[in-house]
Each structure stands twice: as C-alpha cells, then as structure tokens.
C-alpha cells in the first residue's frame, strides 16, 4: 500500500536565538495515522511539535529553516507568508494541562468558529455538538452547556480542549503530553479517543510515557539532541529497533 502523506518535514532546523534546537529533521507524517515523538527531556520533541502550528512565532528571535509541507495543498507551513492564526485552526494543539478558556462549555468549543466569523446559531450549535461528540464528551455535558468549563473534572476539561480543537475541522491534531496531568481512567479515555480520532484527522503526539506511545501510535520517531535518531512503525520500534541509542532509551537504559 502506498503511504499517503499529510505532511512532510524536510531539512528542518530551528533556532532559539543562537541556540540550535532542531537539526536537519526529515520526517514523513502519514495521513490519518498517529505519529508519536519520544525521547529524553530536552531532546527537542516539544520544540518540534510546536513548529507544526507556528507556536514559536509568539516569541522574537526564534527562527525556522527548511520546510514542513502540508498536503495536498503543498504549502510550506513555516513560511513567513503563511498566516500563523489560520495555521493554528487547521493544525490545533492540545496541551499538557487542560487549558479551557474562562467561558462556558459551549463558548469554549465555539471559540475558534467565532474567530472565523461564524455567527449563525444553528451552525454553531451543530458544530459544537459534533465536536463534543467527537471528543466523547457530549453525553456528559449536553444538559449543562452553559456551565463554566472549570466546573468539569480534569479529564473532562482535557476532552473539552480536544472538542475545541476539533471544532475548526483541523487537518492535523497535535498532542503535547495530553495525559500527564490526568489519572489512569481519564488517561485511557483520552487514549481511546486519540485512536478513534485518527479515522478523521492526522495526529502527532509527544509523550514521555513510552507505553502510551506503544498503545496509541502507528509510527514512532525517537529524538535525541535535536535530531531524529530513528523513525519506524511503532511495533518495530518496540520489538526490534535498529539503532542502539533507540534500544537503550526504549529499554530504560538511558535518558
């Protein structure tokens, strides 16, 4: 079967001022699959993830080189001509800690749509419901959509953030350690959700929990010192990696 790519990273370098954090990264991102980025703290995986939706543009002196091509449009998402605000709607991020806005459940999900200028109540209602269903939260909140998002539990808040990310029909969903602040039950709900979501959207996840990468991802990239050391199918990485460094990290011998 021919792989269908959603994005492709080509010779990506990234600098925080004069410090080079990512070195010559090449990586295919397959469409409607989950790709996991693993590696020891400080290896650059979060920095890499943040390139995908131009989060680094929020700070001066940050600099990208190379390309992240988004398919099928064939646009380079790190090119200065591309509007980062629009990119963030198409490539949304779910963070480590749930970060709902201090608004109602409904308004959290509708937020991105309102930014896009959608005002029609019927359209918003439909999108909000669809997104909440997509994030497996609808049944738990449908009777209290006007309640403040902070009334929800941590796991529910995280699923609300996923619903918020889904509302703008993103092409890629980025997860930055999405369960590190959650208990095991909430974690397994999020993991199930990630696996379901890949039917519709391409997913990239950064995780410190190797078992989580093993459970949810189709492909795994092992990063070290700002470089991709090894990229392969997840089952290959976890049973017989080719690189000695990967082997040592995977088996807990270093990192």
């Amino acid at each position: 079967m021919v792989k269908e790519l959603k994005a492709e990273v080509k010779k990506l370098n990234f600098y925080y001022g004069s410090v080079q954090a990512l070195k010559e990264i090449n990586l295919p991102i397959e469409r409607r699959k989950v790709s996991a980025l693993i590696g020891p703290s400080g290896c650059g995986k979060t920095t890499f993830l943040r390139c995908f939706n131009r989060m680094h543009d929020l700070y001066p002196h940050n600099r990208y080189e190379g390309e992240i091509t988004l398919y099928p449009d064939n646009i380079n998402i790190i090119s200065p001509e591309i509007d980062p605000i629009e990119i963030r709607m198409q490539i949304s991020m779910v963070f480590q800690k749930p970060n709902p806005f201090p608004k109602s459940i409904y308004e959290n999900v509708a937020y991105g749509l309102r930014v896009r200028g959608i005002r029609k109540r019927a359209v918003l209602d439909e999108k909000v419901e669809k997104s909440l269903r997509g994030a497996a939260l609808w049944d738990e909140v449908k009777d209290r959509l006007n309640h403040l998002a902070f009334d929800l539990s941590g796991g529910q808040q995280q699923r609300l953030c996923i619903a918020r990310a889904l509302a703008t029909d993103p092409r890629i969903l980025l997860f930055d350690e999405p369960t590190s602040a959650l208990d095991p039950t909430a974690t397994s709900k999020i993991e199930e959700l990630i696996i379901q979501l890949k039917d519709e959207v391409t997913i990239i996840i950064v995780t410190h929990n190797m078992q989580q990468a093993a459970r949810v991802s189709d492909y795994t990239a092992f990063m070290y010192l700002g470089e991709i050391v090894e990229y392969d199918k997840t089952d290959r990485i976890f049973t017989a990696p080719s690189n000695r460094l990967t082997e040592e990290y995977i088996t807990g011998r270093f990192g």
């Binding site: 190797m210 078992q211 093993a214 990485i237 976890f238 049973t239 017989a240 990696p241 990967t246 082997e247 995977i250 088996t251």
Partner: peptide, 9 residues
C-alpha cells in the same frame, strides 16, 4: 516490567 525491544525479545 513492560519489557521492550531486546528485553522483550
């Protein structure tokens, strides 16, 4: 221990 890679093998 959730063995991986060489340990799993």
């Amino acid at each position: 221990r959730q063995p991986r890679a060489g340990d799993l093998r």
